[in-house]
């Protein structure tokens, strides 16, 4: 391997091991001596994505793509950057372009599947993961996404526990597990989402977003939140229906059984106060005490 190749490898390993400061210093030196080297630009983009310096990542990627528009690694990194910045339409166009040029590349199918999972297109994600596995049965990302789809579809026994393990053991899984959490949350399967989030959190305990999501999910999955299920599940519609039922039942009670009217009113008012006050109190309590 040439000196430049060794340097690239060293920088890549530093980024992998989260030695971002050292990687940045080496990269600055490398870029100042080899300003046109596309490999260093891609590494700078990778570093930008890892440190959430998306502007720098984009600048470097655009510079690399201006030199080599067909560079697959640069296009893949651009896809990752677009996903990170929430530009899903552009990300889809990028990955479709890659699949057009590399139709036999299982990893790109898996990346596309991950994007579909992120955007809650579960069926499409499952189909793409299947295609990825057909092309390469050992593709770990495709396997992970298949398992995630199983978890979402509740097809696999104990799948959320397996997924938690997978997240702890597989770097690919960690990147897409967040999507599963979102899907499970949107389907009100809070306990399973909590289990997956725990796997994510143990892998990246310094991720503040993971901590906040974990606490939020623990609140949602707590037994004391069960009475609030209609509000959690149906939102404003649920709230409106509950009010209508309350008004109607109080009206009917007042007419046919006036002796229970005051109890009913107290019950409904208690429920309202509970729904307002209890979730933030529970959140504070769980945050302070742990779980």
């Amino acid at each position: 391997m040439t000196d430049v190749g060794l340097l690239r490898q060293q920088i890549a390993l530093l980024i992998e091991r989260k030695r971002y400061g050292d990687a940045g210093r080496l990269l600055s030196e490398a870029i100042s001596s080899e300003p046109e080297d596309p490999g260093f630009k891609l590494l700078a983009a990778r570093l930008g994505i890892a440190t959430a310096d998306y502007r720098s990542a984009r600048d470097n990627l655009e510079a690399a793509l201006a030199q080599h528009p067909d560079n697959a690694e640069a296009r893949q990194l651009m896809f990752e950057l677009l996903c990170e910045t929430g530009q899903f339409v552009e990300a889809e166009q990028t990955i479709i372009g890659l699949l057009h040029d590399y139709p036999e590349e299982a990893y790109f199918y898996a990346l596309y599947a991950a994007l579909m999972l992120k955007t809650l297109h579960i069926d499409k994600a499952a189909a793409l993961a299947r295609e990825g596995l057909r092309l390469d049965p050992t593709s770990s990302l495709s396997q992970v996404i298949s398992l995630m789809v199983d978890v979402i579809e509740d097809r696999s026994h104990d799948a959320s526990r397996r997924l938690e393990e997978l997240v702890r053991e597989n770097p690919d899984a960690l990147h897409v597990a967040w999507s599963v959490v979102l899907v499970l949350q949107s389907r009100h399967r809070y306990a399973e989402a909590l289990q997956v989030l725990r796997g994510i959190f143990r892998s990246v305990p310094d991720d503040k977003e993971a901590v906040a999501a974990l606490i939020e999910m623990r609140v949602l999955s707590h037994w004391s939140m069960l009475p609030l299920t209609p509000l959690q599940r149906y939102g404003w519609v649920g709230s409106g229906v509950l009010w209508a039922v309350a008004v109607l039942s109080v009206f009917l009670a007042d007419r046919f059984a006036p002796q229970i009217t005051s109890s009913l009113v107290v019950f409904y008012l208690g429920y309202v106060v509970y729904s307002w006050l209890w979730p933030p109190m529970l959140k504070r309590w769980l945050s302070a005490r742990g779980f």
Partner: peptide, 17 residues
């Protein structure tokens, strides 16, 4: 402090580890 906060979170929310 950053380290201690991370460790505190891990102890509090990390489960049975």
């Amino acid at each position: 402090m950053d380290w201690l906060r991370t460790a505190r979170n891990l102890v509090k929310y990390g489960g049975a580890d």
